[in-house]
Write a protein that binds this DNA or RNA. Structure first.
Lengths: 116, 116
DNA sequence: CCTATATTACGGCTGTCGTCGAAGTAATGG
DNA sequence: CCATTACTTCGACGACAGCCGTAATATAGG
């Protein structure tokens, strides 16, 4: 039987109007998740799940992606067998003005210190 | 014997240069601690520990003040038998530009919705 | 269909955080 | 000196988040 051509693997994303500050803060409080956000910013383009440099196992990383997606921080979509990730920068900027940029800037500043 | 007139009860505050983003995020992720920050902003003046409206016991509240102080978010000082609290807004603004205002704005926005 | 690759779901473990009540300490006022 | 007020410290407890490894699922390609 023919496999369905449409919507092979879909991903649910919340409307940011339904995301609370608590959820976003909980998403951004974890250092591994902030690494993900930072690397997305630094790279400047969408990244597949497997290309992040994080000090945790793959299954744990999946968990972190779920948290970030459910908090509306990232958007995910499948490309073949890989899953791509992108920041929902603009939408977040409308929902929580200045929050994401401030956190990203702080990350970058701290990373800058110890990268030396 | 005469009680010491100098430094009756002192409080230690960190230099913000030594406070990391992780610590500040952990301080601000707790809803009770954000209530404290919000109420300080809303009131517009220093508040004593006992005057905050929070849904926790006094001993728990003490713990939250400690976390906020050690993260550099608030400054505390004694006035007689009461302990006053104030936001370190400016210093935080230099250390993590835009972070505190963004969180405060988001708090206010959410509070506004359900106060309706 | 079979294999390889990429990611997810599940179950369990562990450490930490928020919470409380009770006892302790410090200043104030009678 | 004693009582009162305001806050702190301590110990315990329960809940939950992060972590991992293993088994499962879905796509691409031969």
């Amino acid at each position: 039987m023919a496999r369905p051509r449409t919507a092979p693997r879909t991903v649910d994303h919340p409307d940011l109007a339904q995301v609370g500050l608590q959820q976003v803060m909980e998403a951004l409080v974890d250092p591994v998740r902030r690494m993900v956000v930072s690397q997305l910013v630094r790279k400047g383009e969408d990244m597949s799940c497997g290309t992040f440099e994080v000090p945790v196992s793959i299954s744990t990383l999946t968990h972190h992606f779920n948290v970030l997606r459910e908090a509306g921080v990232i958007r995910q979509y499948y490309v073949g067998v890989t899953k791509m990730n992108t920041l929902r920068t603009e939408e977040m900027g409308e929902r929580f003005p200045g929050l994401l940029p401030a956190v990203i800037a702080a990350c970058a500043e701290e990373a800058g210190s110890d990268v030396g």
